[in-house]
């Protein structure tokens, strides 16, 4: 359960949003909408604890996120605009290392099957720098398959993905929600999750 109340955030002199509040329960999915520059990314980064909000409170299961710190981080999976993968490493190494950093030991076979499901069969051991943009995004999104985090915070997960990959992501969201997971995401493309209603949060420039 993620509860946000009276949240305000600014960049420099510019107030992005204020008085923002919402609650997200297990099994719910929320899309953050807004124009470019309306603060979508800042909101997601604030929810991850990267940005200290100017005002307001973010609570996870009733406790303040700032106090929970690492206990909260272990429940969160964040994927931003950047893929968070290393060009020098292969997709397989990237996946194993990022799982390890988030506190999970990932076996070789589990990692390979996750990458195969993401459509990277035969490319698991190539250095990421030879892959295309869409394939890199797929390699990054493979983390969704191996993570046990309850709250997914995804910034434009569909960027650079083709139609097949988009439907795969929709499928993954559905599975995650069925496991009582939560998803918060932004996108400029249509994304429909079967069997779940997407809550919409609109950020409008003040």
């Amino acid at each position: 359960m993620l509860e946000v109340s009276n949240l305000a955030c600014s960049r420099g002199d510019h107030r992005l949003f204020s008085g923002l509040g919402f609650a997200l329960s297990p099994g719910q999915i929320m899309q953050v909408q807004g124009e470019n520059g309306s603060g979508k990314t800042s909101l997601l980064r604030t929810l991850c604890g990267f940005i200290q909000p100017d005002e307001g409170r973010i609570a996870w299961e009733g406790k303040d996120v700032g106090e929970l710190a690492e206990a909260y981080f272990s429940r969160v999976l964040y994927l931003g605009h950047l893929n968070a993968i290393k060009d020098e490493l292969s997709a397989l190494e990237n996946l194993k290392i990022s799982a390890a950093v988030s506190g999970m030991e990932l076996g070789e076979s589990a990692a390979i099957s996750a990458l195969r499901r993401m459509g990277l069969k035969g490319r698991e051991r190539l250095p990421v720098k030879v892959l295309s943009q869409g394939q890199r995004r797929r390699a990054a999104l493979a983390r969704l398959l191996v993570s046990d985090a309850a709250l997914w915070i995804l910034d434009e997960p569909l960027a650079a993905l083709d139609v097949n990959a988009v439907s795969l992501i929709e499928e993954l969201f559905g599975e995650h929600l069925a496991r009582q997971g939560m998803v918060i995401f932004t996108t400029h493309q249509p994304l429909l999750v079967a069997g779940a209603e997407t809550i919409c949060l609109s950020l409008s420039a003040p």
């Binding site: 604890g49 690492e70 950047l82």
Partner: peptide, 19 residues
Amino acid sequence: HLDGTLEQMLLAPQPLSVV
């Protein structure tokens, strides 16, 4: 920082000082 992996480390379930 440039490729985003640092953000992932900030979300590590152990104290950042360990990283």
